[in-house]
Design a protein around this nucleic acid. Structure first.
Length: 496
RNA sequence: GGUCCUGUGGCCGAGUGGCUAGGCACAGCUCUGCAAAAGCUUCUACAGCGGUUCGAAUCCGCUCGGGACCUCCA
């Protein structure tokens, strides 16, 4: 089965065929760095990280562009945006760049912990004001934009005369034109559907640039069009983002880019669904966000404990990206336990040697089962990145792996080719494609100390000195290190 | 109000016509100095009503519930 992707544009699953193989251009809407990232933000960047990883694995030469939105009307949480012309000393005033820098760093820090690969280009909106202005000029020249009082708007009604505005989001232009919603600044627009390309900055606004229309700042949608065009060309393969960006952001992006470049920007549009809390979208509107820093340290009231980045990554990948995912501390605990079991098995499998010669005891049925499960990995990931099914298959392999570990299955009953492919494919899919790393891999020195402790404890146990052996185990447990006495007298350990 | 999505067992979640999804929790058993881990087994399902079909969680209709977007939002 070839890779198929659900295309939001056609509302169908389509076979993925790059425009210019082996090159693939992928643009994903990145974070707005006016505040800290929350759990909801983890979803798209982890989802598209798997997309990126898989495309790389397939051998495509991928250029992955993810922007940083660092322009707009910004205020730091808990701190008022201060008037640029205030009399305060410069160092006391909030510098936009300072704010943006702080949250960009925090974003990078968090997503490094999530083990997401770094995009090839991470362009900032403020670094591409010139490109945005150029694009707006072009829209004006073509007659699809108009200027009012130093602001420039896109003329949606005119666009809709010969284009399908709404084709991505399913909006009907007539309905949009009749919208009765009252919003600030609407009176300047010819129609309420029109959206800003450039906004004149009021005197208090701290982010401002010179433009042919006076001092101002770019509209929200134009940055993505400008930067995607610059780095991926007029027509590229994949554009991704959260479902909440479908309208108006992506719809408007299509309109702008189509006029400027005379071609629709992206061939495949991919949208991930939301993370919900008690059934409601996590986001600004409900004020129910849990910051990533709170997730990691467990400080949010909804959390019963801290959750590691890998637990969160695993939690997200356990469901299909187009389904909503309901957050709860309980669900995260379940993921944490499941992930541990999976990683324990994967660690053992990695160390398991492959015999060079097959004996006569190979278990045909078992071999076929393993091969069936392993060979299904690509089928599932090819089916619109069904990571949930890939993981489910891995969990079906876990009892088999653990049975080898416990001596319940003779290693010889699995053929060397089956074992080899099991080892390889598990590693490829778990580590390389799903990007799940073993956070608990200990360092060498600790490993050696533990070996010593286990040896001492074994000597005590051999002498039936259980007081000593239990003391060692209990004290270690207090340090979150668990000892497991396994069959055959061997003792292993792991961190809680 | 408009457009669209959705309702699966204690919890989270796969699954688009017929085959045990999976994870966590719970219970029993095996193993064990004890414990933990692990293995095995078992138990809770497809919102309701009607229709299509040999057969539906899966298709259609209605009812009820939840949600998303239409406004900054991943």
């Amino acid at each position: 089965m070839p890779l198929t992707i659900y295309n939001s544009l056609s509302k169908k699953k389509e076979i993925f065929e790059p425009i210019n193989p082996p090159y693939v251009g992928m643009y994903v809407c990145g974070p707005t760095v006016s505040g800290e990232s929350h759990l909801g933000h983890a979803r798209p960047y982890i989802t598209f990280d798997v997309v990126y990883r898989y495309l790389l694995y397939l051998g495509y030469k991928v250029r992955y562009v993810r922007n940083i939105t660092d322009a707009g009307h910004f205020e730091e949480e808990g701190r008022e945006a201060i008037d640029k012309i205030s009399t305060k000393a410069q160092l006391e005033r909030m510098e936009p760049m300072e704010l943006v820098h702080k949250y960009t760093n925090l974003f990078h820090w968090a997503f490094k912990k999530f083990n997401t690969l770094v995009p090839n280009i991470e362009p900032t909106a403020t670094g591409h004001i010139v490109e945005q202005i150029d694009m707006i000029k072009k829209l004006l020249a073509d007659g699809y934009a108009y200027e009012v009082n130093g602001s420039v708007y896109f003329d949606v009604k005119k666009y809709a005369e010969n284009h399908d505005y709404g084709k991505l989001s399913g909006r009907v232009i007539e309905d949009l034109l009749e919208t009765t919603r009252d919003l600030e600044g609407q009176e300047e627009k010819r129609n309420k559907v029109d959206f800003a390309l450039w906004k004149a900055a009021p005197p208090k606004h701290i982010m401002r640039w010179n433009s042919p229309w006076g001092e101002g700042f770019p509209g929200w949608h134009i940055e993505c069009s400008a930067m995607a065009t610059k780095y991926l060309g007029a027509h590229f393969d994949i554009h991704g983002g959260g479902m909440d960006l479908l309208f108006p952001h992506h719809e408007s992006e299509i309109a702008q880019s189509t006029i400027c470049n005379h071609i629709e920007p992206a061939k495949y549009w991919m949208h991930n669904n939301m993370i919900t809390v008690a059934g409601k979208k996590m986001g600004k509107s409900y004020n129910n966000q849990i910051k990533l820093t709170e997730m990691f340290d467990g400080s949010h009231p909804l959390l019963t404990q801290p959750f590691s980045p890998m637990t969160i990554r695993f939690f997200i990948l356990q469901t299909h990206y187009k389904s909503t995912l309901d957050f709860s501390s309980e669900a995260l605990v379940a993921s944490e336990k499941g992930l541990k079991r999976l990683l324990d098995a994967a660690r053992f499998l990695k160390m398991l040697p492959v015999h060079t010669q097959d004996g006569v005891n190979t278990d045909k049925e078992l071999n076929e089962k393993i091969q069936r499960l392993v060979s299904a990995f690509p089928d599932f990931i090819n089916d619109d990145f069904n990571t949930a099914k890939v993981l489910a298959n891995m969990f079906e392999l876990v009892p088999i792996i653990n049975s080898i570990k416990d001596g319940l299955i003779e290693p010889g009953s699995i053929s060397s080719t089956t074992l080899q492919s099991l080892k390889e494919e598990m590693d490829i899919y778990l580590t390389q494609i799903l990007g799940i790393e073993d956070e608990l891999a200990p360092d060498v020195q600790i490993e050696q100390i533990m070996e010593l402790l286990i040896e001492i404890r074994k000597e005590a146990r051999d002498k039936k000195d259980f007081a000593t052996s239990d003391k060692i185990r209990k004290k270690l447990e207090a340090m979150d290190i668990v000892l497991n006495d396994e069959k055959g007298g061997k003792t292993t350990w792991n961190e809680k």
